[in-house]
Computed example of a mutant assay.
Amino acid sequence: MTTPRERLAAVGNQIPPLIALIVLWMLLWGEFSWLNLLVGFVVGMVVTVGFYLVPVQLSGRVHPLRTVVFFVRLIVDIVWASIDVAWLAVKPRLVTSNAILAIRLHTRSDLILTWTAVATSIVPGSIVVDIDRESSILYLHVLNMHSAGDIESFRRRVQNTERRIVRGFGSREEVERMRGVRPENRRAARRAKRMNEKGTS
């Protein structure tokens, strides 16, 4: 059974999609009126209740500087990748060597997994073809992979994208996981440290 707090959290998670649907409805009609607002609310309620999806848990944490770093780096990656793909298109004697890569991520968050997939796909030269949600694995079709070094370089690039997203938007547990320390281990270490301090005092 769910507790009242869990039910309240579930209702709260449905509010952002409801607001987004109302705004989308208003944009489709191209004008604001109380009737459009009311109809948009009704349509949004029908969609969010009738087509209920498991709510995505937001971390509630945003690091402004890390977020700026993520977007700036994403823009730089898009520009450089666009130049590389354009050169491949006009390069004489082009020898294509594409690959399907399986890249395991560290995150266990559906939201971070989705954002990493989107951020990787919008950079020219690669596209996500499948996702293993249970194992947090992205399967990508990647252009111009000629060696194991190219594959490893691309793998690090995707994992670095994941790391920047986690640092900007992820929960504290996700940040700890990206540092290679599981949250439960960190908590256990803190408890052990407190116990030792009590024992020596």
Rank of each mutant, 00 (worst) to 15 (best):
V85Q: 13
R93D: 15
A148F: 10
K198G: 14
K198H: 12
R5A: 10
L58C: 07
G50P: 03
V62A: 06
V123F: 12
R93W: 08
G170V: 09
A102G: 01
W34R: 01
L140V: 03
W34V: 01
V47D: 10
D150E: 02
V49P: 01
V11I: 10
V49S: 14
T114S: 03
T96Q: 10
H63N: 11
S136Q: 07
E184V: 04
G44T: 15
W80L: 10
M26Q: 12
L65S: 05
M195D: 14
A148G: 06
G12E: 10
V46C: 14
V23I: 12
A9C: 06
R163A: 13
T200A: 15
L8R: 05
Q14K: 11
G125S: 05
A9P: 07
V158Y: 11
N13F: 15
L37I: 07
S135Q: 15
G125L: 03
E174Q: 02
L94V: 04
V85H: 07
V142Q: 10
T120W: 00
G12W: 12
R187Q: 15
E184F: 01
S126K: 00
G180C: 09
L37T: 02
M45H: 09
A192N: 13
R164A: 11
V123S: 05
S153L: 09
I137L: 06
Y139R: 04
I100K: 01
A20L: 15
S97A: 10
V42C: 12
E184G: 09
L94F: 11
I75P: 02
G125I: 01
V43D: 07
L105E: 03
G125P: 05
G44E: 14
I165K: 00
D84I: 02
V142L: 09
V54Y: 11
L74R: 02
R194S: 11
E174N: 03
Y52Q: 11
G170P: 05
R73C: 12
H141T: 03
E184Y: 03
P4S: 00
I103R: 04
R133N: 14
S59G: 05
T67S: 09
M145N: 02
Q57V: 11
S126V: 04
R93P: 06
R194I: 07
D77T: 02
W80K: 13
L74V: 03
V90W: 02
P92F: 13
W29K: 14
R187I: 13
A192W: 08
F154Y: 07
V69R: 08
K193W: 10
L140R: 01
I83V: 14
E6H: 06
